[in-house]
Lab assay of single mutants.
Amino acid sequence: NLAEVVERVLTFLPAKALLRVACVCRLWRECVRRVLRTHR
């Protein structure tokens, strides 16, 4: 699944970079939201 791969990669990025990549597309924005939720 593409979303799972994107989420896996996003887990390695710092928070500032996550906010930046959330603007790329809807899929990435949803993935960033899930990554941020799991880090809390």
Rank of each mutant, 00 (worst) to 15 (best):
R20F: 13
A15C: 06
V35C: 08
A22D: 04
C31I: 13
E4V: 10
C23T: 11
R8Y: 03
R26Q: 03
L36T: 07
E30H: 09
R8F: 02
R37G: 12
R40S: 09
V32D: 00
A17C: 13
T38D: 08
L18P: 02
A3I: 14
R40K: 12
A3H: 04
R26Y: 00
C31H: 06
T11Q: 11
E7Y: 06
R37E: 05
V21A: 06
H39P: 08
H39R: 13
V21M: 13
R37H: 05
C23A: 11
V32W: 11
A15F: 06
L10Y: 04
K16L: 02
L19R: 15
L36R: 10
R26C: 00
V9I: 06
H39W: 15
E7N: 07
L27H: 13
E4Q: 13
A15W: 06
P14L: 07
V35E: 00
L2C: 04
L10E: 00
R26L: 00
L36N: 03
R20G: 15
H39C: 15
V24P: 01
R37Q: 06
V6K: 04
L2I: 11
E30L: 09
A22Y: 03
R29Y: 05
E30A: 07
R33E: 05
V35W: 09
V35D: 00
L13F: 11
E7F: 07
E30M: 12
C25Q: 14
L2P: 01
L19H: 13
E7H: 10
V6I: 14
F12R: 11
R26P: 01
R40G: 10
H39I: 15
V32Y: 05
L13A: 09
C31G: 10
E4Y: 13
A15D: 02
L27K: 14
R29I: 04
L13I: 14
F12T: 08
V32E: 00
C25F: 13
E7K: 13
C23F: 10
R8Q: 03
L13S: 07
R26V: 00
L36K: 13
L2G: 00
E30G: 08
T38M: 14
C31L: 15
L27V: 09
C23H: 13
T11I: 02
N1D: 04
V24D: 03
L10F: 10
C25N: 10
K16D: 01
V35M: 10
R37N: 07
R20L: 14
T11D: 07
L27S: 11
R26I: 00
C25V: 10
E4G: 13
T11F: 07
L36Q: 08
L27Q: 12
L27D: 05
L19D: 11
E4S: 14
C23P: 02
V32H: 00
E7W: 12
R8L: 01
E30K: 14
R29K: 11
R40Y: 02
T38C: 13
L27E: 09
V35N: 01
E7I: 09
L13Q: 02
K16P: 04
L13G: 06
A22R: 08
A15T: 10
L27F: 14
R34W: 09
A22G: 08
E4N: 07
L27C: 12
T38I: 09
V32M: 06
R33L: 04
T11Y: 04
L19P: 03
L19E: 14
T38S: 10
H39F: 15
V35P: 01
